[in-house]
Design a protein around this nucleic acid. Sequence first.
DNA 1: ATGTTATTGTAATGTTCGTTACAATAATGC
DNA 2: GCATTATTGTAACGAACATTACAATAACAT
Lengths: 163, 163
Amino acid sequence: MADLSQSTGAGAGSLYNNFKGGKKELFRRSLLQRREDLNQFKELLERSEQPIELIKNFFLGIADEGEKSHKKGCIVANTIVEMTFVDEDLEKEAAQILKDTEALYTNTIISEQRKGNLQSAISADVLGKHLITLWCGINSSRRIYPDRNILHQQIELQLQILQ
Amino acid sequence: MADLSQSTGAGAGSLYNNFKGGKKELFRRSLLQRREDLNQFKELLERSEQPIELIKNFFLGIADEGEKSHKKGCIVANTIVEMTFVDEDLEKEAAQILKDTEALYTNTIISEQRKGNLQSAISADVLGKHLITLWCGINSSRRIYPDRNILHQQIELQLQILQ
DNA sequence: ATGTTATTGTAATGTTCGTTACAATAATGC
DNA sequence: GCATTATTGTAACGAACATTACAATAACAT
């Protein structure tokens, strides 16, 4: 909260008067924001002719972000690591967002498999979870290697599993 | 420090008298412990006839751990996420341990490639980094799915890249 | 056994940080 | 234009927690 006060220039009083619920509610709202992003991506996927390509490009796009962005990582994935044994509510809420993201991936994969656009013998369920694990893996390794080429190579390698 | 005092039964004074450096030094020593584990694994790999199998079984073994263990995860991978923008020293120290682990994997892969035991066309460098990304990915996803079968399936899928 | 040194437990200290009280200021409705 | 209401900034409060002071106790050496 002190950091937020500092960076926005708003005094502590202002923050609390305009934001009932304090620190935890602010955290929850930040996570909610990512749920909005998920809903938007869902619509994008539904309209797309090549949704698998969209997902792949989404992942590959991570590599192009800046170093500051790599260091920050994804708030949802971070929360799962940081809130374990600290705040179960927030951990669960973050985990649920990733599970819903997984469901979106899985459903997209099933749909494309039916259309014959995906010939991988691996089940959609396993592939959906694989993308979440990839997301989480990159969320950490992008801090160790905040390098476009390395990340691009790593992401591409793991996307090959999708075929 | 309060948690440690609570769980060990030792008073705060006892902790500080026997452990110069306080909280941060304690953290550093905990990380150092994982470096010891790395050195032990290195020796195991050097003695092994099938080092790649050893690495694979090491990863697959994660799936068999208990739920508490899944929730805790790996202190090194956790530190990289949790110490970014909080303590650069500790973040760097953790990142270095993962980089050294990567080097061990990469060297093992190079050695096995030369022996003709690995026919993957992918470079050892990329494969080594892949294993680190896998480690980090599983470190998060094991909290979302603390389930033996799911984790085993995910790890096996990603180990196939090694051939 | 006895003097010395290490170890322990409790209480106190200091710091960080989330939160609230309150007076000052700005915005809004009639 | 004035009364009411909302918003701001500062300072104070309180909780959590890392650290230290110190007296009591145990361990050890000669």
